[in-house]
Structure formats: structure tokens, C-alpha cells
Amino acid sequence: MTRVVRVVLLTAIWILLWSDPSIANLLSGLVLAVVVVAWFDRRRQGNVIIRPIAAVKFAGYFLYQLIASTLVVARTVITPRDRINTAIVAVPLSGCSDALVTLIADAISLTPGTLTLEVRREPLTLYVHALDVRDINGLRHVVRTLEVLAVTAFGDDDALEGLVVDDTTVWRGR
């Protein structure tokens, strides 16, 4: 199932690049996509499932955070000194696949004043650089919300179970 989605996506990008949906382009795109997916499929771990309603929720929250982030950073550019209070904060995640961690890390890099610097497994932790860190709990809350939304939207059953078990008790409390 995941493979079919990937082949369709790659073929769509191929046709967009040619910007001409002819039969020849469709066929050559399909052949290339199948080869690429078969070639890179060997390293894949975890299944990506798409739950449409949860995916829309994730996209909505992400877009809201993106716009808020842009306004915050724009305001900080105009009035720098009093709003910059930088730090690197460790944020624990519950267990999920590499693809999900990538998605969450990318989303964090685009939310207000946060930037993922480092990812560690065991325990799964993101190291996030924050522009204004006076509200550490607020920052953790944003990351946690993004994680819950991403896992309920795209996670497989293992990731969902991990989400229920995991709580802020995993946090080592530095």
C-alpha cells in the first residue's frame, strides 16, 4: 500500500516537471517510479498509514503554527533585544518510525522560534534550539501537540500504542 502511494506521488512529480500529461510521460514516469521505489524500499522501516481526518487536523495545526511563527519572527526582527532569550532544550518523544521523527523535526523547525539541532534514539529525544525560551513548558507543549497529531495522523499501530504509554514521566527532569 505504502509503495503504491509512493509510486503515484513520484509519477505525479515527474508529470509536473514535464508539465505535459501525455501517455509517454505517464509511462516513463511510472517505470522510473517503480524502479526508484523498488531500489530504496530495502531500507524502509515502519509502515506509513494515512488517516485523512487526523491528517487534516495535523495540517491545520501546522499551518496555524507556521503563520504564528512567521509573525513572531518578523516581530522579533523589528524589535530584537528584548525578545531574544536563546537556549537548547531536550524534548523527549515517544517511540515512532524514522519517517515520523523526520516529519515532526521538520514541523518543529518551521514553528515559532524553534529549530531542531539533533535527534537521538534511546531514549528518542529531539534537541531543539529556541529563540525565546522563557516559556519552556509552552515549548514542550507545542512539540508534544505536534507529535500527538502527527502520530495519530500517520503512525502505525505500534506508534499509537507507544503514544498511550508515554507521558511526561519519561522526561528525566533536568
Binding site: 531574544i84 532569550n85 536563546t86 537556549a87 537548547i88 532544550v89 531536550a90 523535526a105 521538520d106 514541523a107 523547525s109 518551521l110 529549530l115 531542531t116 539541532l117 539533533e118 534537541y127 534550539h129 529556541a130 525560551v133 533536568r174
Partner: peptide, 28 residues
């Protein structure tokens, strides 16, 4: 864009000779 930022940020933290000024805690 976020992936590129992550690469540069990660590399810069490891590299010597880059002045990183932090006001708060540094868990990394």
C-alpha cells in the same frame, strides 16, 4: 528549508571556532 537548517545547525554545533551564545540552559 527545514532540513537544510537542521544540517547547518547540527554541523555548526559540532564545529570548533563558532561562537554560540546561549542565555538559557544547554541540554545538548
Amino acid at each position: 528549508a527545514p532540513s537544510a537548517a537542521h544540517f547547518v545547525g547540527r554541523a555548526a554545533y559540532r564545529a570548533e571556532g563558532i561562537d554560540i551564545h546561549l542565555d538559557g540552559p544547554d541540554d545538548l
